[in-house]
Design a protein around this nucleic acid. Structure first.
Length: 485
RNA sequence: GGGCCGCUAGCUCAAUGGUAGAGCAACUGACUCUUAAUCAGUAGGUUGCAGGUUCGAAUCCUGUGCGGCUCACCA
């Protein structure tokens, strides 16, 4: 018999014994008067009224007629002290309890000789019997695969993991508070799309049986939020799950969380100012400071962030002026001179993108706005007035990652239609699954007139990575996507 | 998809071709201020999986599954 089967059998046996004694191992209710943290605070204020607490037994030190356990709830840990002379028959029940069980305890709080604030247990109740052993107490659970697949074990045995997700929650709350304070309203738009638009990415497809139509999981919220701008909701945002059927990496999960906002009568300069204020506001609210450690670097989110054009950022990284190499042939040769291997197929726009990911993104540790992108890379962004080739678009980078993408939105319906057509042409030509698709319904909306608008997409997961010094997106997503075993 | 690395008891890890081990957890016993409690004892293994080489494989080889890092892909 494997050891684990033995442990499980022992615990099931305890369960049977308890039931035989008329004890319900899974009672319906328990009234707790305080959290562990509140009970400790109460005692520190000099109040020793009786309290009732509840949580999971995470450690047990039994010494004959006295037993100490560590009891954890979401607020923290408290030690509980059991004495057989205070519990009489219930001390036998304690023997049937295991590390991992959930119990309720009541009594008065006191301080032990060694100084630890402790609950002296007058009564206790088993609230849920655990039939599986917990990971080892000292090293916790380190097996990464198991941590992701059984996140509850990760949360039970590694306290810092809970803190990461608390930061995540507070960061999202801070984003909402910031935008609400600026008069934005939060909206919810469809996840199931008839055309997956608003970004250049491969969608997940699904099928609706009653409609007998294929549908796509959204790759962005952009086109629906713009419809709302057209409808006169001048400041809207949505925080929601986005799905992209692409590779998985330390910076990519197939489903991730994005905040998109649209503001009428703003342009990308206004959005830039908003992003640096918002992110520093979030850092201050969540961490009480704008400087964060990220690996070996310290990142300071305090405005103003550095601003640089894409042209100069690429020049800085590899000494290529992408505007001087106006066709794919010329740009490809310039890249090859830099010693980077590129084959014949990539278009000019793809080559520019390659330059960004190789020579710009990894170098931008401090928050930086990279401005003015080629129109071919940005089918939904408005051209710069003085340039045929560039659009009013920026991406924000920090910690070597892209965290935001924004532009002055294209609101000319005729040009938008042409841009979609061009994307369609590329898709047919190159079999590019990621090209933007024509969305006729959206074009009709645009034809009704959209005010000049500044739009933004902010990667929430990556922002949380920066705030928590985590270098894999899986560490900030509770249940990251893994292959089934 | 390529490269590198990992997978051994519930957990954390040893064992480099020669008897699969330790700590924690579990079980039995002692112990009324412990806190990685302590002390004595007991039990627990399809070494991810499938083949192969060998007198002998956790260890070497081939294939494969899952994971990690990385490169590519991802206009």
């Amino acid at each position: 018999m494997a050891r684990i089967d033995g442990i499980k059998e022992q615990r099931r046996e305890k369960l049977r014994e308890m039931r035989g004694q008329g004890i319900d191992p899974y009672p319906h209710r328990y009234h707790r008067s305080h959290t562990n943290k509140e009970a400790i605070a109460l005692f520190k204020r000099g109040d020793d009224s009786p309290v009732s607490l509840a949580g999971r037994i995470v450690a047990c030190r039994a010494m004959g007629k006295a037993t100490f356990i560590d009891l954890r709830d979401s607020s923290g840990k408290i030690q509980a002290y059991f004495r057989s002379d205070l519990l009489s028959d219930k001390h036998d029940l304690l023997k049937q309890c295991d590390v991992g069980d959930i119990i309720g305890v009541s009594g008065k709080v006191f301080r032990t000789h060694s100084g630890e604030i402790t609950l002296k247990v007058a009564d206790f109740t088993l609230l849920s019997k655990s039939l599986q052993p917990l990971p080892e107490k000292w090293h916790g659970l380190t097996d990464v695969e198991k941590r992701y697949r059984q996140r509850y074990l990760d949360l039970i045995s590694n306290e810092e993991v809970g803190r990461i997700f608390a930061v995540r929650s507070r960061a999202i709350a801070a984003v909402r508070r910031f935008l609400d304070g600026r008069g934005f309203i939060e909206v919810e738009t469809p996840v199931l799309h008839h055309a997956a638009g608003g970004a250049l990415a491969r969608p997940f497809t699904t099928h609706h049986h009653a409609l007998d139509q294929d549908l796509y999981l959204r790759i962005a919220t952009e086109l629906y939020l713009k419809r709302l701008i057209i409808g006169g909701l001048d400041r809207v945002y949505e925080i929601g799950r986005i799905f992209r059927n692409e590779g998985i990496s330390t910076k990519h999960n197939p489903e991730f969380t994005m905040m998109e906002s649209y503001e009428a009568y703003a342009d990308y300069n206004d959005v830039m100012a908003m992003v640096e204020e918002m992110v520093s506001y979030v850092a201050k609210r969540v961490l009480r400071k704008t400087k964060v450690s990220f690996g070996e670097n310290t990142i300071d989110f305090a405005p103003p962030w550095r601003r640089i054009t894409l042209q100069n950022a690429i020049k800085e990284g590899c000494d290529i002026d992408f505007l001087e190499h106006a066709d794919d042939h010329s740009l490809r040769n310039a890249i090859r001179k830099q010693g980077l291997d590129v084959d014949e197929s990539p278009s000019w726009a793809k080559l520019v993108d390659k330059l960004i990911s190789n020579f710009v993104e990894p170098n931008l540790i401090q928050p930086t706005f990279v401005m003015d992108y080629p129109v071919e890379l940005s089918p939904l962004a408005k051209r710069k007035p003085e340039s045929e080739r560039l659009v009013e678009r920026f991406e924000a980078f920090a910690g070597g990652m892209e965290i935001a993408n924004a532009f002055t939105e294209l609101n000319d319906p005729i040009e938008q239609r042409e841009r979609f057509r061009e994307q369609d042409r590329l898709r047919a030509l190159l079999g590019d699954e990621e090209a933007e698709r024509v969305d006729e319904d959206f074009l009709v909306a645009l034809e009704h007139g959209m005010p000049p608008t500044g739009g933004l997409g902010l990667g929430i997961d990556r922002l949380v990575m920066l705030l928590t010094d985590q270098h894999s997106i899986r560490e900030v997503i509770l249940f990251p996507q893994l292959r089934t075993k």
